[in-house]
Simulated scan of single mutants.
Amino acid sequence: MGKDSKPKNKGKQPAAGAGAGDDGASKSGGKGKGGKSADGLGTCTYVKARHVLCEKQSKINEAYKKLQDGWLDNGDKVPPAEFAKVAAEYSECPSGKKGGDLGWFPRGKMAGPFQDVAFSTPIGATSAPFKSTHGYHIILCEGRKN
């Protein structure tokens, strides 16, 4: 197991990429030169992402429904430009004005659940809504690098 023996996903549905709280990518090599793991996520040290942040769960669910109705229900990936429109409309983060663009950030910069979900969401995929200390989020992973 990991450093602590407590499960991090206590009875909740898994967020993006099942088991986001205890994914192997965040513990399997950290800042190593990293090859690819079985799930293709590898052990990257940087991720490029967009997000939507809302204080209320009902608002993030509304934003997610908009993404579902447009793309996710059909199994499609949300195009970054379309995700940016949803972020501009719904996000309460200052990044919302930039389509939710957070740019590239290293492992260790973002807190707990946000980092776990960002680094475990496959490139081009959108996470399910999840809660962090800042509110409720949806993440679109746009890239990874070492």
Rank of each mutant, 00 (worst) to 15 (best):
M1V: 15
G2K: 11
G2A: 13
G2Q: 11
K6P: 06
Q13T: 13
A15Q: 08
A15R: 10
G17H: 04
G17N: 09
G17I: 00
A18D: 11
A20L: 02
D22T: 06
D23E: 07
G24Q: 08
A25H: 04
A25Y: 03
S26I: 09
S26M: 14
K27F: 14
S28G: 15
G30A: 08
G30K: 10
K33T: 12
G34V: 01
A38K: 15
G40N: 10
L41E: 02
L41G: 00
G42I: 01
T43P: 08
T43V: 08
T45A: 07
T45P: 00
Y46T: 10
Y46H: 15
V47S: 09
V47W: 00
V47Q: 03
V47L: 01
K48T: 02
K48Q: 13
C54S: 12
C54A: 12
Q57N: 10
S58D: 15
S58C: 14
N61S: 13
N61C: 11
N61W: 04
A63N: 05
A63D: 01
A63V: 02
A63F: 05
K66I: 08
L67F: 07
Q68E: 15
Q68C: 15
G70V: 07
G70C: 08
G70T: 12
W71F: 15
D73A: 13
D73Y: 06
D76S: 14
P79R: 03
P79E: 06
P80C: 13
E82V: 01
F83P: 05
F83M: 08
K85A: 13
A88V: 00
S91D: 12
K97A: 15
K98N: 14
G99T: 01
L102I: 05
G103I: 04
W104R: 10
F105V: 05
P106G: 04
R107C: 02
K109E: 04
G112V: 01
G112N: 14
D116M: 07
D116P: 04
F119H: 03
S120W: 00
S120Y: 02
T121H: 03
P122C: 05
G124C: 02
A125E: 11
A125R: 10
A125M: 05
T126W: 02
S127W: 06
P129T: 09
F130Q: 06
T133C: 03
L140W: 09
L140T: 07
E142R: 11
E142A: 03
R144T: 00
N146D: 13
N146E: 11
